[in-house]
Design a protein around this nucleic acid. Structure first.
Lengths: 142, 142
DNA sequence: CTAAAATAGTTGTATAATGAAAGTATGATA
DNA sequence: TATCATACTTTCATTATACAACTATTTTAG
C-alpha cells in the first residue's frame, strides 16, 4: 500500500494537532472559544435539534454539550425552544446575535490563517482544504 | 489566495481537532499519551536539549513540558543529563526503553491510520502527507 | 390502564492538561 | 560584589471533559 505516506501522515498529524490547538486556543478571539464556535457551527448546519444529537455529532458527552449550550443560551447566542411533541426535548437555534458573533469569530480566524498561508499557491490551498475535509469524514465513526 | 479555500480550511480545522481529540483519548494506545509521544518525538529529532527549547518548538508553556519531561523520566523513557557547561540546564535524551515504547506507539498509530485511510488513493495520501508537512512548517512560529 | 423501562436533559463530582505566577538555583553583567 | 537574567520546578487556578446520579417526561409490557 502507501506505507511511506501513512507514516508521514502519522508523524505530521501529531505535530499538526499541537499546531492547530495552539492556533485556535492560544489566542482568545473575541467572545467565543473553540468549543463554543464548533457547537454553534453544528447548530447552524443542522435542522433544529437538541443536545443529544449534537453531542453524538461532536463526539462529546451529552453533559458537556448541555453545559456548553447553557452557556451559549446564557450569553444570548442560542435559543432553546421546547419541543411541542415531546416534553423532554428542546431544539437549539442560533439567535441573530449568535450568528453575528460566529461570523466575527470566523472572520478573525480566517484572517489569521490567511496570513499564515500567504505564500501558499491557490492550488495547494485548494488541495489541502479538500483533503482535510476528506480526512475529517474518514475518521468520523458515523 | 482563494478566500473559499481559506474558509474551508478554517472550518475543517475546528472539526479536525474535535475528531482527533476524541479519537486519541477514547482509545489509549499502550503506555503513552499523545502529549508524551509528541515530546519524545521532538526529543528524538533534536540535538540533546532542555525543556525551554522543546517548549518553544511545541508551542507549550515551559512548565507543561517540564512536567511532561519529569513524567517521562520517572517512567524511564528519557534521561535528564545536567549540562556540564551550565548548572541550570539539562539535556534530555531518549533511553533505549523510550525508543522502544515510541516505536511501538508509532506502529499502533500507523496501523489505525492505515485502517481509516484504507479507501484513499495513493495519490491523495501522498498529497495529504506532503501538504500536512508544509502546513506544519507554515504555521510554525520560528 | 398502570408499573416498569427508556429517553432527553441537567447537575454534581472527579480527573487531566494546561498556563500563570511564584520559587530556586545558577550564571552573566554592571 | 550586587543586581539582573536565565533554566527549570512547583504551586495554584482554570478549563474541558467524562461519568454518575438525578429529574421529568414518554414508551412499553403485562
Amino acid at each position: 500500500m502507501h506505507q511511506q505516506s501513512i507514516e508521514t501522515i502519522e508523524e505530521e498529524l501529531a505535530i499538526f494537532i499541537r499546531r492547530v490547538t495552539s492556533f485556535s486556543s492560544h489566542r482568545k478571539l473575541g467572545n467565543l472559544d473553540r468549543a463554543a464556535y464548533l457547537l454553534m457551527h453544528r447548530i447552524s448546519k443542522e435542522v433544529p435539534t437538541g443536545v443529544k444529537i449534537l453531542a453524538e455529532q461532536l463526539q462529546l458527552d451529552i453533559s458537556t454539550v448541555s453545559r456548553q449550550a447553557a452557556a451559549l443560551e446564557q450569553k444570548g447566542y442560542v435559543s432553546k425552544l421546547p419541543d411541542p411533541q415531546d416534553g423532554r426535548s428542546y431544539s437549539l437555534q442560533l439567535t441573530e446575535l449568535g450568528l453575528t458573533e460566529m461570523a466575527e469569530y470566523k472572520r478573525v480566524r480566517s484572517n489569521k490563517l490567511k496570513e499564515l498561508l500567504q505564500d501558499w499557491s491557490d492550488e495547494d490551498a485548494e488541495n489541502f482544504a479538500q483533503l482535510l475535509h476528506k480526512f475529517n469524514r474518514s475518521i468520523c465513526p458515523k
